[in-house]
């Protein structure tokens, strides 16, 4: 019995030592880690959505699921313009990709940026997994995500404030994008999603280059006032 108590005391002291050291190490490292991660988030946001001042995450419940977005403001010609930024999960040829996307008040898509290509789902998958991450920051910082199967395609949920029947004009496909040949096509939002499917080719290459940034800017020719609920 005495031995057991002695063992227990030694173990408790060891754990207390470990916890103390780790606590103080974390305390010292934390500001630097936060600074670095904030820098990553800000540089991603400013790279994809130049000129916008973007606030923190907003979460709204949407048909039992979460829809996380950020709003931002830019000042153009003395007029404040609002933008909405969100994650879009897109089925690709090889897997589901996560895109970081944004629209302005007139439903112009400001930018789309590939953030992650988490893993193979199925070839020619039509139904992407539903993302259940807690924040943009998690994606931008490259943290792993949890997915739910058998969910509705996020593209329809996240783009619901865009008129699906309205055509989308492809203005700028960015470098390395192989879908630019089809710009004359009058696309609706389904084709926009198909664009993203086609982007899988580019995405695979991007992933091979350590997820280099891929940029694509598309614009809806006419304004269509849609609001995020």
């Amino acid at each position: 019995m005495r031995n057991v108590i002695k063992h227990l005391i030694v173990l408790i002291i060891t754990v207390a030592f470990s916890v103390t050291i780790i606590f103080y190490s974390r305390k010292m490292a934390h500001p630097y880690i936060v600074q670095y991660e904030t820098g990553i988030v800000n540089s991603t946001l400013s790279h994809v959505f130049p000129g916008y001042i973007i606030d923190k995450d907003n979460i709204l419940l949407n048909d039992g699921g979460k829809f996380i977005y950020r709003t931002g403001i830019t000042n153009s010609d003395g007029i404040d313009k609002k933008g909405f930024f969100f994650l879009s999960v897109i089925p690709g040829y090889y897997c589901t990709m996560i895109l970081f996307a944004g629209i302005d008040e007139n439903n112009n898509i400001i930018g789309i940026d590939l953030k992650q290509q988490p893993g193979a789902l199925s070839i020619y998958s039509e139904n992407p997994e539903n993302i259940t991450n807690e924040s943009f920051s998690g994606i931008i910082k490259g943290r792993s995500l949890v997915f739910e199967k058998n969910s509705d395609p996020d593209i329809f949920i996240q783009f619901k404030y865009i008129d699906f029947n309205r055509g989308i004009k492809l203005l700028n496909t960015g470098s390395g994008n192989q879908i630019s040949a089809d710009t004359s096509m009058n696309r609706n939002i389904i084709y926009a999603a198909t664009d993203c499917i086609l982007l899988a080719d580019t995405a695979v290459k991007c992933v091979k280059k350590d997820l280099d940034m891929m940029k694509k800017i598309v614009t809806i020719p006419e304004q269509n006032t849609g609001e995020v609920r």
Binding site: V10, T14, S18, S25, A29, I33
Partner: peptide, 28 residues
């Protein structure tokens, strides 16, 4: 100070502590 029977958990705790310190330092 470490009894023979509990040496491995104690050693592991010590190692994990220093690994965590190294990890946090590199992360920062």
């Amino acid at each position: 100070l470490v009894p023979w029977h509990v040496r491995i958990p104690v050693f592991m705790s010590v190692i994990v502590t220093f690994v965590t310190v190294a990890e946090l330092t590199l992360n920062a």
